[in-house]
Design a protein around this nucleic acid. Structure first.
Lengths: 256, 256
DNA sequence: TTTTATTTTTAGACTGGCCTAAACTTAAGA
DNA sequence: TCTTAAGTTTAGGCCAGTCTAAAAATAAAA
């Protein structure tokens, strides 16, 4: 199936919104509700969320959704939202695999800064051939995670579902390990690296004031982040948590 | 100047057609007419040649030429053809630099076959950022030629003008060195490698029958190529020729 | 020089992806 | 239940890049 760059971006965005949408459901209490491979149902993705995620107007999203539906890559219930079909999810995972492989390659082989690789990968993910993908995968020895800690889908469309919590939800006194950071915003990434919040860093939360967006942390050195955006951009595991890297076939699960 | 992929392809193709067009002028006699940096005037590129080179219909070429002319990237004399302005040539050389750097990178770093890298580079050349270009250039130690022997333009838009002859024009008894091969056709490239015609190979022409397209060569082993296409895809220097790698600023020369 | 063949350009149309404005659904509140 | 607000879809248009068919210009031949 040969798709346009735009169509691939829509599929990828639907996948990501559904994924994070799930995590956001019922998250007031921090604790044992968002572990590993809980039921991955989640609500369909709304047109508005899709349009916002892609920075286009809502009617543009509607139009593309109808096109993808006619290709049987998404299921669209008018006024209700959209979900990926197994075929659509397969393509979304391929694009995400490309993206994260390229990020890893750019960082590890070409030595690019980790705040730059995301924007590059956004372009590369759409033109990567099977051959180049395989060469890059081999050169990196089939990496499982990208430089930001995000899991890289396998060639056959399975992806590890980490169950990490956003740092945002950690409370004062918690001792946690940074597992993943969002690659979206270069400025946030540079800030995170400055204060030491990179995957693998261990830290203790000294003071947490989620409302005001102030978080004081004991890392190697002491760190302080302000605003919910950085705290939202970091996923952590609470010390004692299992590494929880169970591969799952998303497409298969989708079919149920 | 941010251009579409299509616009960049047109500029690149105009550059290449003009370049090879020059070489084709008055080439009956083989000898001292096509050396190094002779006057690079050549005829303007015709609409038909451009359309053929890009595999589009002639009216499509006319339309894009008018657009590029409005951007002052080409000079268009209706019914007479088109030439690059210095600004247009600068962009063409940037695209060609990207292409050849990527080819070199894919071959040397990722170990791809030399018959595959051209098609990949056709896609990469349009999305390569300055940063990645610089990283690749550094990783390869600023290469001067790509795996097929074509010169890589410098960052400031100068390109070595080799003065090699097409193998097609060699006569029986000539002793020559392969300098460059065309990267266009993967099948031809595989064939050339099979018979040993890679840059650096030294060979003696045993028998030449240009009309029938048969060429018998003594390489390391004996080789025989049939058809004008392979013979046209190879540039050679006659033994004793100087390496002739004089950088020139094409854009400057164009301005005269 | 006139006719003919070839090439180039214009005219008009189509697709993909985007937009704004307006109409329509759904969900929420009175 | 009715009204209103919010979100979604339809209607209609724009731009880039392509196409075919027809008209115009140039070059070649008579």
């Amino acid at each position: 199936m040969v798709l346009s760059t735009a169509a691939e971006d829509y599929l990828k965005t639907i996948y990501k919104l559904r994924e994070t949408g799930v995590r956001a459901v019922g998250n007031e209490a921090r604790g044992n509700e968002a572990r590993g491979n809980e039921a991955r149902e989640g609500a369909p993705v709304t047109t508005q969320a899709l349009a916002d995620g892609l920075q286009v107007a809502a009617p543009s999203a509607t139009a593309m959704v109808k096109k993808l539906a006619s290709l049987k890559l998404v299921a669209h219930e008018p006024y209700r939202g959209v979900t990926l079909t197994p075929a659509g999810e397969k393509i979304a995972l391929e694009v995400i695999r490309h993206h994260r492989l390229v990020e890893t390659f750019l960082a590890e082989v070409l030595g690019m800064d980790w705040d730059q690789v995301h924007d590059e990968a956004e372009k590369w993910e759409h033109i990567l051939s099977e051959e180049v993908e395989a060469k890059i995968d081999a050169a990196l020895n089939s990496p499982t995670h990208d430089p930001h800690g995000a899991p890289i889908p396998t060639l056959d469309g399975r992806i590890a579902s980490d169950g990490w919590q956003p740092l945002l939800r950690a409370g004062a006194g918690d001792r946690v390990t940074v597992r993943r950071v969002s690659d979206r915003n270069p400025a946030v990434l540079r800030h995170l690296r400055e204060v030491g919040l990179i995957p693998g860093a261990r830290l203790e939360v000294l003071r947490a004031a989620p409302e005001s967006g102030v978080l004081e942390l004991q890392v190697e050195a002491q760190a302080r982040i302000v605003g919910t955006e950085p705290a939202r951009a970091v996923w952590v595991s609470h010390d004692g948590d299992t590494p929880s890297s169970n591969l799952q076939n998303d497409a298969a699960e989708n079919r149920k």
